[in-house]
């Protein structure tokens, strides 16, 4: 790995999340470095979404702290918080495009409301971002209900990228896509990541994605994370990890 990857961009320290008596995260530590692609995996209910929501500030943790770009997100003023949020692009699982707006207007929302840009520049940016995510320009005038699953994800990705964020969060980006679209989406992420110097955090169950684009993998087991490169994780002795990465499906993707 090159030197850049050693600069921490997100630091999660001693994180505790509990719902009633059920503890989801117990003193969890996770550091994400600039320029890497981190895959977050774990069993259903292991707290992947809760971790992602905590990092994004959508969920207030029961204990511990989250630092993004060196700042503790719990103690920020509204304005400082907004600056951090603008450095984060998020692709939600279902796309979360605003259903009452066309794709073009969806992508223009951050440009108009946050960057205070006006037409025609905003429209040019829309076409640029659509071409970046590999959608035909005519998609701009469609509404979210008229898009297929893959197109929705691409359009939502265009919206997430429109302010050139440093960190891109992807929540199950390939779920619900057919293998061809999923593969195309993986290579799109890979291409954009190197072109735009992105740091990518992705929650995924897709073994192909883990293999093709992730530099490191964080596995949520026993209320903590085990982080490592693909090879390190493969060699880990934890029984759940053994099952996950050496099961029949994994063997089909990774080989022996």
């Amino acid at each position: 790995m090159d030197k850049r990857t050693q600069v921490p961009i997100i630091q999660v320290h001693n994180l505790v999340n509990a719902f009633g008596k059920q503890i989801v995260h117990d003193l969890l530590d996770l550091t994400i470095y600039r320029g890497e692609v981190l895959g977050l995996v774990g069993a259903s209910g292991a707290g992947k979404s809760v971790l992602l929501h905590t990092i994004l500030g959508l969920h207030r943790p029961s204990g511990g702290e989250v630092r993004i770009l060196g700042k503790n997100i719990a103690g920020l003023s509204f304005k400082e918080r907004a600056q951090i949020d603008q450095q984060c692009g998020v692709l939600f699982q279902g796309g979360a495009l605003f259903s009452s707006l066309s794709v073009s207007d969806n992508i223009q929302v951050p440009l108009r409301e946050l960057a205070r840009l006006k037409k025609p520049l905003t429209e040019e940016v829309v076409f640029q971002k659509l071409s970046m995510v590999g959608l035909p320009a005519a998609t701009a005038f469609k509404y979210p209900s008229e898009l297929s699953g893959g197109m929705t994800k691409r359009a939502a990705l265009a919206r997430a990228l429109v302010l050139d964020p440093e960190i891109l969060f992807l929540d199950e980006p390939t779920s619900g896509l057919d293998p061809i679209s999923a593969g195309a989406f993986d290579s799109l992420i890979n291409e954009l990541k190197s072109n735009l110097n992105l740091t990518v955090v992705m929650v995924t169950h897709d073994l192909d994605s883990l293999k093709t684009i992730c530099n490191r993998i964080a596995v949520l087991v026993d209320k903590q994370v085990i982080v490592g490169t693909v090879d390190e994780i493969m060699a880990n002795k934890n029984p759940w990890i053994q099952k996950y990465f050496h099961g029949a499906r994994a063997k089909a993707v990774w080989g022996e």
Binding site: S104, F127, S131, M132, A137
Partner: peptide, 13 residues
């Protein structure tokens, strides 16, 4: 890189 992504001039319907 940006030049790879051409801006098409498409008119809305």
């Amino acid at each position: 890189q940006v030049s790879q992504y051409p801006i098409e001039d498409v008119q809305p319907p």
